[in-house]
């Protein structure tokens, strides 16, 4: 958490889209559970952005923020936007040990990790799921850049060595088979997704009434490639009713998380570009937009096409950033 303490979260557009998708998802789950009575637990960062958002759009009014960096914690005390947020100066690991989960309401927990210590994060996920109960929703965001597996100077052996390191780091939660193909930038999020689901499922071994229902998973890159996974704990016999009421299966961003996570990165457009592109929407396809602009936005055409398609899906959902002088 400490390393992320000073990242200007509010300026990361893909993260903003992802946050909006989360709110969208929760409001749909709200058709089944009374989501505004849930308690939210998350890493607020210096601005407690997510907390503001959840409070205003879903009326969630019982929230806990976890922060272990003393300086960021002081900033949070200054910035605290609402009286219904309890600030705890604590790491997620300590929180898992100290918090009385049995006395809590239904929970929405989002561990939005910024460090790259995937092993610790997986074991925290298992512990978290062990403590959650029926109806609780959890979400984890982890760094999914395979460069952190190291071996940068290994030449052509790099992927084989990374696969070896991934096997060690993911440990008991690793899928049975990790090939060098699984640890390239494109496929690494899929590998981590399997490990996350594995860890969460291990957390259910002691409670036979609950099953894990994956709801969404996304990969996005604001500088670093990140993976985010969200699920809910249900009783096995209520699955059909849950999906019937929430109509989540017809939500375009729903995923049962058995395939690769959906990429939600959008192109970085100038103000002028964005106005122009939005004037063609809804209606235009990614190819039409690129043809109309007569250039592409991104490193190469293929990525640019994919990102423009994402823009078409998400343009209503992410904010406009501009300079304000007060």
């Amino acid at each position: 958490m400490s390393a992320g303490g000073n990242i200007p979260y509010h300026l990361r557009q893909n993260k903003a889209i992802e946050r909006n998708l989360f709110i969208d998802l929760l409001s749909r789950v709200g058709r089944y559970f009374n989501i505004s009575d849930f308690q939210y637990i998350g890493f607020g960062g210096p601005f407690l952005e997510d907390f503001k958002h959840l409070h205003s759009s879903l009326r969630i009014s019982n929230m806990i923020s976890l922060e272990m960096n003393g300086n960021v914690f002081s900033r949070q005390q200054f910035n605290k936007p609402s009286s219904c947020i309890t600030l705890r100066k604590e790491s997620s690991a300590d929180f898992l040990n100290s918090y009385d989960f049995d006395a809590a309401d239904n929970l929405i927990v989002w561990f939005d990790y910024v460090t790259t210590d995937i092993g610790e994060q997986l074991s925290e996920l298992q512990q978290l799921v062990e403590k959650l109960s029926h109806g609780d929703i959890f979400k984890v965001t982890v760094n999914a850049s395979p460069t952190y597996l190291g071996h940068a100077d290994a030449g052509r052996e790099i992927l084989a060595l990374r696969a070896e390191t991934a096997r060690t780091r993911l440990g008991d939660y690793a899928p049975a088979h990790i090939t060098p193909d699984d640890v390239n930038t494109r496929n690494y999020p899929t590998l981590l997704l399997k490990a996350l689901i594995n860890a969460a499922k291990h957390g259910l071994a002691g409670d036979s009434s609950l099953t894990l229902e994956p709801l969404a998973c996304f990969a996005y890159t604001d500088g670093q490639q990140m993976l985010t996974f969200c699920g809910v704990l249900l009783n096995a016999d209520e699955r059909n009713l849950f999906f019937e009421k929430t109509r989540l299966r017809s939500w375009p961003f729903y995923s049962d998380c058995t395939n690769e996570p959906k990429s939600i990165s959008v192109p970085v457009l100038s103000l002028k570009e964005r106005v122009h592109v939005e004037s063609m929407l809804p209606g235009a396809s990614a190819d039409e937009i690129i043809a109309e602009l007569a250039y592409y936005v991104g490193n190469d055409l293929k990525t640019a096409q994919a990102e423009m398609s994402n823009f078409i899906s998400f343009y209503r959902m992410f904010p406009w950033y501009s300079r304000v002088v007060i």
Partner: peptide, 22 residues
């Protein structure tokens, strides 16, 4: 019922079994 739950893969039994066999 306990076995059925393990076989339904609610607790990631499949991966654990494959690793044991490996």
């Amino acid at each position: 019922s306990g076995v059925s739950r393990l076989f339904s893969d609610a607790t990631a039994f499949e991966t654990d079994l494959i690793k044991s066999i490996s």
